[in-house]
Each structure stands twice: as C-alpha cells, then as structure tokens.
C-alpha cells in the first residue's frame, strides 16, 4: 500500500474516530457516572496516570443509576412518549400535505417542473431557525392568523396557538415539508404515463387508476419521505423551544434543559443514550428501504 492511499484513508478516518466515535464513548461513560457539583460535574473521571488500578477503580464506580432514574421520574417517560407522538402525527400530516404537492409537480409540464423543483429546494437552503421564527408573528395572540380569522368572523376571541403543541405541529410540517415532497416527487416522476392509460384501458376509473397504480408505485418514495421527517423530528429542539410552550415535552428540549439549566451531565448523557436507542430502529428500517430501492433501480 502506498503512502498516498494510506494518508487518504487515514486522515478522514482518524478525524471521525476522534470527533465522532470517541465523543460517543464519553457520553456513554458519563451516563454511567454520578453527578457532582464540581467541574466537570460528574465523578468518577478517568485517571490514566493511575494505570490498571485506576482503570479498575473507574469501572467499579460506573452504574446504571441514571437510567434507573429515567424510569422512575415520569418526566422522561412522558417526554419520550410525547416526542414519539408528536413525530408520528406530524409525519402523517406532512405526508397528507406533501403528497398532493409532489403529485401536482409530477403532473406539471416539462417546462415548469425544474422551476417547481427549485421552489421546493430553496427553503432547504434558507436558515432553519428563521423559517421557524417566521411563524411566531403569524401564530401569536395578536398575530396575522388571528387577525385574519377575526376579520372573517370565524372566531370572536383570538385563539391561543403559539406556545402550544399545535404550533409545534405546524412548525414541524412546515420545515420538513421539502424532505417529504422530494422523495415522493422522485418516485412519481419516474412513473410511466402509459401505465395509467393501460389501467384506464382495462376498465379503471381515473380515481381507481390513481389508487391501484400511482399510489403503490410511489410507495418507496412515501416511505423514504416519512423516515426523513420522522427521524429528525424525534430529536427536534429548535421547534419546541421557539414555537412550543412550557408544557410541550420533547426529548431534545429535555436534554438541553437537563444540561444547561440543571447542569446534570450524567442524566443528560443518559437521556442522549436512550434517545439514540430509540432512533436505531427507524434508522435501520430507513437504510433497508433505501437499499431495496437502489437494488430495484439496477
């Protein structure tokens, strides 16, 4: 093996080992440690100079206390469950909103499609925080939505939307919508128009053809889109803390508060470890879906 190849592989490899994998080891370690008031606010710390005895001493002090604590305090339980609920529900809403848009794009003329595509991708490049923030002015008590609804006479009292879970749902659907539209559009765009004509030729109504041909053939895109919304939504922090209220429970926010407000690093680390475990299943399912799609395309 020549030096150039070794360097080519070793440099990014070493970088990721040092700044991605090792930090995880540390999180895992601290999640098994005890909280202390000194800095860093946890014991034991690994003293490498003490050698083997120090290592043994170190391991003997680790325990699952923090994880037991997570099961005892129902705050964490409720936060995990509420994260799952919010992520699932908002994924479904995003699908309902995104599918017709993706479908409409795939039906548009060749001249229009690149422009529409651009319009979907553009928000992705714009700051996430700003896009979430843009809803504050709309959803607040005196916000534009309430002004509009009062003006139309649909309501007589302003609704409280900002700082509730409803605002969180709106925020998630809004910011993750492009992630839903793009994979669905990609699978719908490949759909051969003659398949629909064949279905109608064989006696389907247009609606039946849509239901029996278009929907099944866009399944891979729908699944990919759902995962692309669901996975980041679970660990979301910005949306619940900007649009949600004090009663909005999401695990990303709990972790943040545990770390910055309570300065309980061991519990924050334990929360992170559990969050990661929850994410493993959807991530593996997502990878499998992607792989199957790639194989089908070959």
């Amino acid at each position: 093996m020549n030096l150039r190849r070794t360097l080519l592989i070793a440099l990014p490899y070493a970088w990721l080992l040092a700044l991605f994998l090792v930090p995880f080891g540390i999180v895992l370690k601290i999640s098994l440690s005890d909280m202390a008031l000194a800095i860093p606010p946890y014991v034991p710390t690994l003293d490498i100079t003490a050698g083997w005895a120090g290592l043994k001493e170190f391991f003997s002090q680790l325990d699952f206390e923090n994880f037991v604590f997570l099961t005892e305090d129902d705050l964490y339980w409720r936060a995990y469950l509420s994260s799952l609920k919010i992520a699932t529900l908002s994924t479904l809403i995003t699908l309902l909103v995104g599918f017709p848009i993706a479908y409409g794009m795939s039906r548009a003329s060749d001249a229009w499609r690149p422009t529409l595509m651009m319009l979907v991708i553009l928000p992705f490049w714009t700051s996430f925080l700003i896009r979430v923030y843009s809803w504050m002015g709309i959803l607040s008590q005196q916000g534009l939505l309430n002004q509009f609804l009062l003006w139309t006479g649909l309501i007589s009292e302003p609704l409280t939307i900002l700082n509730t879970n409803v605002a969180v749902y709106i925020g998630i659907v809004y910011t993750y919508l492009p992630f839903m539209i793009l994979p669905i559009y990609a699978s719908l765009e490949k759909l051969d128009e003659s398949l629909l004509e064949a279905a109608e030729d064989l006696g389907c109504s247009r609606l039946q053809a849509f239901w029996l041909v278009t929907v099944p053939l866009s399944r891979a895109g729908v699944i990919a889109g759902c995962f692309l919304v669901f996975i980041p939504a679970i660990g979301e922090f910005v949306i619940p803390s900007v649009l949600g209220g004090s009663r909005t429970l999401m695990i990303g926010k709990v972790l943040w508060e545990e770390f910055f407000s309570n300065r309980d690093w061991p519990v924050a680390s334990a929360v992170a470890v559990v969050l990661l475990l929850i994410l493993v299943v959807p991530i593996i399912l997502f990878q499998r879906n992607q792989q199957r799609q790639r194989e089908q395309e070959q």
């Binding site: 990721l16 979301e236 690093w265 992170a272 969050l275």
Partner: peptide
Amino acid sequence: GMIYAPLVMPDVIMGLSLLLL
C-alpha cells in the same frame, strides 16, 4: 457507518458529545 451516522443524528446528541469531549 461514521460517514452516514451524522446525517441522521439529532443535533443535541452531536453537540453534547462534542462538548463532553
């Protein structure tokens, strides 16, 4: 694995682990 994992990793976990490092 290390190349693809950060794409799906929640920011809070990435941030926390790096800070602890």
